[in-house]
Design a protein around this nucleic acid. Structure first.
Lengths: 150, 150
DNA sequence: TTAGGTGCAAATCATTTGCAATCTC
DNA sequence: GAGATTGCAAATGATTTGCACCTAA
């Protein structure tokens, strides 16, 4: 992705930012691009590291503030991890299952059609009004398994 | 539960502590009891608060150190929460689904027989070796729903 | 022009750690 | 008595906040 074109997802967010009365600063644009370009689920530090080379004056605090803003607008979903900081999903900012490799720390999206049905069953049997979920599977990704086998 | 008898779960853990060469200090005993007595999934602060009245000299650091020890021994499972600290499960210290009330912060265990089958399907379709999971449903518990309806 | 945004540095909050004093085995 | 454990206080690491300066609209 070159520096002068935005992905549809970035344009999308930019539009909503403007509509909500927020300003498009060069820092924000760079942070948005870093988020959208990241095919994994980046941490704040990863985004910061990706932004700094193109925009050396950007501060970590600004990345954090931008993340807060994007969370408020629902454009980013936070996945809480104890170690090494939270990770974020800009591509699919709604609850969905993840596959987390505990070796390389990569996070992949997973398909699990059965989940909706499961949620409903659980709601009925417990009386809970279920509004959201967090479904993460931890293990070793195919790549790391291959490496481990020499 | 009075101060002089231990639940089977506490006796269980005490035995394994001794067997692993760890000492049974009064602080540890009090912390273990607080963990086991708590029918919800307590945070370190909750355990600390429960221990202090009976054992005023106990320090937070000791509670933390005991938690580390219990985690290492597999007697306690940590459930990571960003806000307000992690929560712990001593009763069922292996991965299982939870129902989390976002209003009263209560955490309940859930039954979900379908999960094992689901995990296996996911492992096959993705090539991941799945070793663990974290399945949490967030919502409003029956009690909080009742209160909300006057 | 002027609110909103940035960046520094200091403040938080949960958790960990170093270490001398104190206990359990 | 020896080595593990405690408890204080200081260190850590992620995140937040206060505030003077800056800049997009």
């Amino acid at each position: 992705m070159n520096v002068h074109s935005n992905s549809p997802r970035v344009e999308d967010i930019l539009q909503r930012l403007r509509r909500a009365g927020h300003r498009i600063t060069p820092q924000r644009l760079a942070i948005l691009r870093a988020f959208a370009d990241s095919h994994s689920h980046p941490s704040v530090d990863m985004v910061y590291a990706a932004v700094k080379p193109n925009f050396p004056t950007t501060s970590l605090a600004t990345v954090y503030k931008t993340v807060v803003l994007l969370k408020e607008l629902g454009e980013v979903m936070e996945i809480g991890f104890g170690e090494g900081g939270n990770r974020y999903d800009v591509r699919v900012p709604t609850p969905h299952p993840h596959l987390v490799c505990t070796r390389c720390r990569r996070i992949l999206d997973a398909e699990l059609d059965a989940l909706d049905h499961l949620t409903e069953t659980l709601a009925q049997s417990t009386g809970f009004r279920i509004l959201s979920h967090r479904v993460d599977f931890y293990g070793i990704c195919p790549e790391c398994r291959r490496k481990a086998a020499h």
